[in-house]
Structures are given as C-alpha cells and as structure tokens.
Amino acid sequence: MVDQSMAIMTIIVMALVVYLTRAGGYLLGLQVRHIGTLRPVLEILPGCAFMAILAPAVRQGSLLDLVALVCVTGIMWTTDNVAVASALGLVVLLFGEEILGLIT
C-alpha cells in the first residue's frame, strides 16, 4: 500500500519538475533572445524534438500502426483537420485488424 503523504508529495514533485521544464525553457530562451540569428533556430526546436521522438517510434510500429499513420498523414496533408485525422487513425488502430479480416 502506497503511503498517502508520500503519494501526495510525489505528485507535487512531479508537477514541479514538469513546470520547471516548461518555464525553464522559456527562461533559457529569454537569456539568448537578444541574439537575432537565434530566433529561427529557437522556432525549429519543437519540430526537431518531435522528429527525434517520432522516427524510432515509427520504426518500431506494426503494419497496422503504419496504415494508421498513412491515413492520418493523408488526411492532415489534404485537409489540416486534426479531429478527422485523429479519429480515423484511432478507428484504424482499434478496429483495423477486424476491417482487414473482413476484406481478405
């Protein structure tokens, strides 16, 4: 049984750590914002982080995961509609095996 006060303290520490990463990046950016050439670099950082996380995840994905990814990419590229793309991707992940089974 997890001790109640320890659980609460752990959650508070987690909240602090997450907040510090959010605010810390902003504070770090404020220190270098006077360097004009860094602005475009700062703005590409989230994209670089997403790609660094995405590439190995896609590499490890199953065939069904990749089908979902292709559907999401196609919808996003043509419509920019996050809700439709996410919903379709989820349907493929949840029911893809059954759908493929019906087709084949």
């Binding site: 990046g25 504070l27 270098v32 982080a49």
Partner: peptide
C-alpha cells in the same frame, strides 16, 4: 518542454 518553452521566447 524545454525546447517548446524556448521556442516561445
């Protein structure tokens, strides 16, 4: 999040 925070500078 550090990178996201920096991007909003």
């Amino acid at each position: 999040n550090i990178l996201l925070g920096m991007s909003l500078t």
